[in-house]
């Protein structure tokens, strides 16, 4: 798969961010195309997560451009960027701990279908099949009824992935998807990510500090630190 065949889904140009006097991200540029799996690499503290947080609008960039499907998205809020078709996972998993696995996905689906304002329908009866299909895809179908608060870490990562896929994203941002996982689990998860990219033609951007993971899965890698491309 080469970039020439698909127009880039995400185009990042000269992105920079400084905290006080410390340059966390400086002058980063890259592109990801649909169906492509791209890794942002660098050691811990290199600014990968900062970079990610700028991409989905969680923090404001100091300079540079972010374009999603040709549309500038710098300055938009996370929820607005999500609505455009960008899903993401977090380095430290962020799920709804007082809900079951399925409810986590259902909540995302309800949001995607813009039905969260509904006051009187029963939430758990909405989008059950769609949720289960997503859970099946990440291998969590069997644990759909379990509370998120009691899940193992690796399973939480899978739930996050299912949640991130709920809005049928064209770009998926995965922040350290394999951190803290056993090697076998890692492999499975990255396999899944690769399938998503190819099978659903999603552009997948992930951060990773482990080069083994990167080079076993991705043809292309972009480094956040030192700033180079």
């Amino acid at each position: 798969m080469s970039q020439a065949m698909n127009p880039p889904v995400l185009r990042v140009k000269n992105l920079s961010k400084a905290y006080g006097g410390v340059q966390a991200v400086s002058d980063v540029s890259f592109e990801v195309a649909a169906g492509e799996l791209l890794a942002l690499i660098g050691p811990n503290g290199a600014g990968k997560t900062t970079c990610f947080n700028m991409l989905n609008g969680q923090i404001a960039a100091d300079a540079g451009g972010i374009e999603f499907e040709g549309r500038p998205v710098r300055g938009l809020k996370p929820r607005e960027i999500w609505r455009l078709g960008v899903g993401r996972t977090f380095q430290i998993t962020a799920t709804f701990s007082s809900m079951t696995v399925r409810e986590n996905v259902q909540t995302a689906l309800l949001s995607h279908h813009r039905r969260l304002g509904s006051l009187f329908s029963i939430a758990t009866r909405q989008h059950v099949e769609e949720a289960d299909a997503l859970l099946a895809r990440v291998g969590m179908r069997e644990q759909a009824e379990r509370a998120c608060g009691v899940l193992a870490y690796g399973d939480l990562k899978r739930v996050e992935l299912a949640v991130a896929l709920a809005n049928r994203p064209r770009l998926l941002l995965m922040d350290e998807p394999t951190a803290g996982m056993a090697p076998r689990e890692r492999n499975e998860l990255m396999q899944l990510a690769a399938e998503l990219a190819r099978g659903s033609n999603i552009a997948v951007l992930f951060t990773e500090h482990d080069m083994d993971v990167v080079f076993s899965r991705t043809p292309t890698a972009s480094s956040c630190w030192p700033a180079a491309n």
Binding site: Q58, F90, A94, T95, F96, S97, S98, M99, E103, Q106, T107, L110, S111, R115, L116, G117, S118, L119, F120, S121, I122, A123, Q126, E160, V163
Partner: peptide, 16 residues
């Protein structure tokens, strides 16, 4: 309702 779930979602993890 979905509203209630969204409310709890905002409490459990504002980030997510």
């Amino acid at each position: 309702s979905p509203f209630g779930y969204a409310l709890r979602a905002g409490r459990d993890s504002p980030l997510r």
